[in-house]
Amino acid sequence: MFYLAKDQMSGQARAMPQGKRLDWPSRFAFLAEASKHPSLKAFYQQGVVAASTPITEVSLVALDFETTGLDPRRDSIVSIGLVPMNISRIRCNGAKHWVIKPETRLHPSSVMIHGITHSVVEDAPEFSTVIDTLLAHLQGKMIVVHYSAIERRFLHAALMRHIQEGIEFPVIDTMEIEARYSRTWRQTLWNGLMGRQPSSIRLTDSRTRYHLPYYRQHHALTDALACGELLQAQCATHFTPSTPLSALWS
């Protein structure tokens, strides 16, 4: 799932290693040495738990961004929601939500999706002012997202712009987990031939499969909570408490 263009990685000491077999603890140790910004350094210094850790013992944080569009080079973050959790409890009192003044223009089409308008962002803080707090809330925790490309790429791009250093981190991607357990491509193809819809792995549709309640979408904090609940449901359904983290992350 590594997707970053070469030009975006200029701040990194060396290209990112490929694939799931990545040794995240040693990668973090290396990055803690290599990075310069104190908050980023602190983020890496907190480290990552070992891949063999049972999922019940892992501290998690569900994270969601609303953005002005889908291209991290041209679009930017307009709001961030996060909520700390573990596999049995989501703790709303640790939740955070920021509306950010985007560095790029708000497209009318994205305003329609997340409902954050020009007047709302006018008085909102710049991304640079939340970097320290944001990284502090993420450090030492495994990040949980639905569709990792958005949060990974946008956070990387935003940090590149503001502190000239990118970021790497492992994630648990509930969409990727859902893809594993929903229909295979073969069945999807068959259903396509039969005129049936393949099962959707979008957040709302995935939640329905676990009988989770309907939540309105596109509010970063609600989406983070929705994603956290989905992970709990997936774990209760497909995994056991002793399943190692390595079975979930990427």
Binding site: R89, I90, C92, A95, L212, G228, E229, Q232, A236
Partner: peptide
């Protein structure tokens, strides 16, 4: 109250 809840999911029969 809402800001301080915890959330938990239980699969049927658990």
């Amino acid at each position: 109250v809402a800001a301080n809840v915890e959330v938990a999911y239980y699969r049927a029969q658990s």
